[in-house]
């Protein structure tokens, strides 16, 4: 009945004309004909860490005039897997699309959670870094990392290590890595997972767990205010924001773990495009606009691009893969 009415008033041709007009109009309203246009694909929702990175970088790029127009597309789901699958599937029309991502993409690719791996994508550049840290409450009898090692060697079951995400995720792996470097069995680490970094911190402060494995960014404020003490950091060298915290290297353990955040292009992106994108990002580091964004968010610069970024990722992958095999995850 409805369709009959519809056909009576609107001939098919009229309908087609209207539809194409709308397509044209909507296309022109959405598409920007500028050459300098980028599209950021964000694998998580608005307000998350990936979202903040993409929008922060985008702000610096547009305000400094390096890029005329940037659009942002949030596509959450599958722990980030949906966005990767989307980028792979529509690669041809995504030549100016950059997907933001971070260390978990390596871990989840190994776990075969995604239908694709990060290796299917074209790495462009890492832009910022965070490091793993271990912390105890201020009142704790543990004073330094060496005591943690002794406690662990005496009885690993007495030492609860908490983190803000599930077993086999970054906080757990960093903890396993640290105890492996000591020469102990990483499987014996009693890891207590929480569903958010803030809750893991609250758990530590409530006395529920002994040690917290987390990112420096998430523990900095509590360390500065004297609620917790950071015992060691997984960076290559001491961090200027916590100059009194020793690195594992100084303590004599080969533990370096960098949690990077960076950008990927679609599969088989031409070398030319890769160069344009990574140069744009490189130029951004010199702008005052980026400095403003960086300070506002408390980020640490880490620029690795192109081939180097690829090698860095492969190295990280082989380290994590070895560890996860030892832990029984793979």
């Amino acid at each position: 009945m409805i369709s009959r009415n519809f056909i009576k008033y609107w001939t098919i041709r009229q309908v087609i004309t209207i539809v194409t007009t709308f397509l044209l109009v909507s296309h022109y309203l959405i598409a920007d004909t500028q050459v300098h246009r980028l599209h950021f694909l964000i694998p998580g929702g608005a307000g998350g860490g990936w979202d903040g990175t993409a929008r922060g970088v985008g702000e610096a790029l547009t305000k400094s005039g390096l890029v005329k127009h940037i659009s942002y597309q949030n596509m959450s789901g599958g722990g980030g897997g949906r966005a990767i699958a989307h980028l792979v599937k529509t690669a041809k029309r995504q030549q100016d699309t950059l997907m933001v991502n971070s260390t978990p993409i390596v871990i989840r690719s190994l776990q075969k959670i995604f239908s694709h791996s990060f290796q299917d994508l074209t790495p462009i550049a890492a832009v910022i870094a965070d490091y793993g840290v271990f912390a105890v409450v201020n009142e704790s009898e543990i004073q330094n990392w060496q005591q943690v090692v002794t406690l662990f060697q005496n009885d690993p079951s007495q030492l609860t290590v908490s983190g803000g995400s599930g077993r086999g995720s970054m906080d757990h792996l960093v903890a396993a890595l640290a105890f492996q470097a000591v020469g102990e069995d990483p499987k014996k680490v009693r890891y207590i997972p929480y569903d958010a970094g803030g809750k893991a911190m609250a758990g530590l402060l409530s006395g529920e767990t002994k040690i917290l494995s987390t990112g420096l960014g998430e523990a900095l404020e509590q360390h500065r205010s004297g609620q917790i003490r950071i015992l060691a950091i997984t960076a290559n060298e001491r961090s200027p924001v916590v100059p009194n915290v020793p690195t594992f290297k100084e303590l004599g353990y080969e533990v370096v773990f960098i949690n990077w955040r960076g950008f990927f292009g679609p599969p088989d992106l031409s070398q030319e495009k890769v160069k344009i994108h990574s140069k744009t990002l490189k130029k951004m580091f010199q702008t005052p606009h980026w400095e403003k964004v960086r300070i506002r968010n408390g980020w640490k610069n880490l620029y690795i691009s192109g081939e180097k970024f690829h090698n860095f990722l492969m190295q990280q992958e082989s380290m994590i893969s070895k560890l996860m095999k030892e832990l029984g995850f793979l």
């Binding site: 959450s76 789901g77 722990g79 897997g81 949906r82 599930g166 077993r167 997972p193």
Partner: peptide, 20 residues
């Protein structure tokens, strides 16, 4: 969805859409 503690997939039937 994914189990928060162990990362095991539960009732997802291999569907990426149900993973979270």
């Amino acid at each position: 969805g994914m189990d928060n503690v162990t990362g095991t997939q539960r009732f997802t039937f291999g569907q990426l859409n149900l993973f979270d």
